[in-house]
């Protein structure tokens, strides 16, 4: 009996969402009185036994370089086989791009109940009930998983990384697999280097139509840089091509839950709020005191972004010395 946690990685690095999933899986294993074990397909540039710091007892690794690139169909088969071999009763995925590709396949293959977008540990007092976001962040649902085997995909930034609760060192076990040839061929891949992926960012500075044009994005970027934050934008901004589509947050863009979300020149339409309302602290800068976003905000300044934002940047720089 164990909780098996999928460890997602890219370019030799274990992703932050994987550490969240490990911490979550370890807490759940404690709750169920079973052991937490990780599964990693491919190779990374670190000593995997150190993942024991996050509570994992074992890490099952299929150390084949051919697996460094995620193929959902190939991965699902290997993970499903490992679930059966290790006798896991719960499988945890981060609900990022990788998890969204693989978790449903694993669940369907093993006929396991799936909850994707989990935001809290399961309630196991009476059955097995997991809280997840629904209606694009406008509400939560408590979903009962009615199968012996359960699959959970955990939303990024929803569970804190807990270090130092485990024994400290995990046993690394080689997972022997006969990898099948992927049916999807990767022709090319581009990665924005040095940037924090928006879904993983703890601080986000976001701009809307109030900025009047792409040429004014410097003030957003300067504040983001001073804070060490990622940049985002509203839908009209992405639709107008002022900013790339992958920066669009909201109901039809991506949903994020950073510690701090600073909305500049965004009125706060219900579709935009849906994508950001799980942010822990929301700051709104808008010259219109009637902007609906102020109702959802923790802090706000009614004022001209072009005057206020550079002063905020200055204050951050001063604070950080």
């Amino acid at each position: 009996m164990s909780v098996l946690i999928f460890i997602d990685h890219s370019e030799g690095q274990v992703k932050k969402v994987s550490l969240e999933a490990l911490s979550y899986g370890a807490a759940l294993a404690g709750q169920l009185g079973v052991s937490a074990e990780g599964i990693l397909l491919g190779t990374v540039g670190m000593d995997l036994s150190t993942l024991g710091r996050f509570g994992a007892k074992k890490i099952h690794q299929a150390a084949q370089e051919g697996l460094n690139h995620l193929d959902a169909q190939v991965y699902a088969k290997i993970i499903a086989d490992a679930v059966t071999a290790t006798g896991a009763t719960v499988v945890i995925f981060p609900n990022n791009f990788s998890g969204k590709a693989v978790a449903p396949r694993v669940a369907a293959r093993l006929k396991a109940g799936l909850v994707s977008g989990a935001v809290a540990l399961p309630d196991t007092a009476n059955g097995f009930v997991v809280k997840k976001t629904v209606f694009s962040g406008k509400a939560f649902a408590h979903v009962a998983l009615n199968t012996p085997l359960k699959v959970i995909a955990l939303n990024p930034n929803s569970y804190p990384i807990r270090e130092g609760e485990g024994s400290g060192s995990a046993e690394v076990v080689a997972l022997s697999v006969t990898a099948t040839a992927p049916k999807v061929k990767v022709v090319s891949a581009t990665q924005a280097t040095g940037e924090v992926p928006l879904t993983e960012a703890e601080l986000v500075v976001s701009g809307g139509r109030g900025l009047k044009g792409p040429e004014n994005w410097g003030i957003i970027e300067d504040l983001a840089k001073a804070l060490g934050a990622a940049t985002a934008c509203s839908r009209p901004v992405a639709d107008s091509g002022w900013r790339p589509h992958h920066e669009h947050v909201g109901q039809t863009g991506i949903a994020i839950a950073p510690n701090l979300y600073i909305a500049i020149g965004i009125s706060g339409a219900i579709q935009h709020l849906a994508g950001v309302n799980r942010s822990k602290v929301i700051v709104v800068i808008n010259k219109d005191p009637e902007a609906p976003f102020f109702k959802a905000a923790d802090y706000g300044i009614v004022g001209d972004a072009f005057e206020v934002v550079p002063k905020m940047t200055e204050a951050v720089k001063k604070l950080k010395g």
Binding site: A107, K111, A112, G113, L114, V115, V129, K131, V134, G137, K138, A139, F140, A141, H142, V143, A144, L145, N146, T147, N277, R278, I282, V283, V284, F294, K295, A296, A297, D298, Y299, G300, I301, V302, G303, D304, E307, V308, V309, K311, M312, E314, A315, V316, K318, L319
Partner: peptide
Amino acid sequence: LTSIVSFELPPAKAGVKLIPADNPAELI
């Protein structure tokens, strides 16, 4: 394989704390 037990709305925000426009340093 799954069933929805119940729904829940997010808790309402306590209210926005407004900072004067001439003092962004206070916000930071």
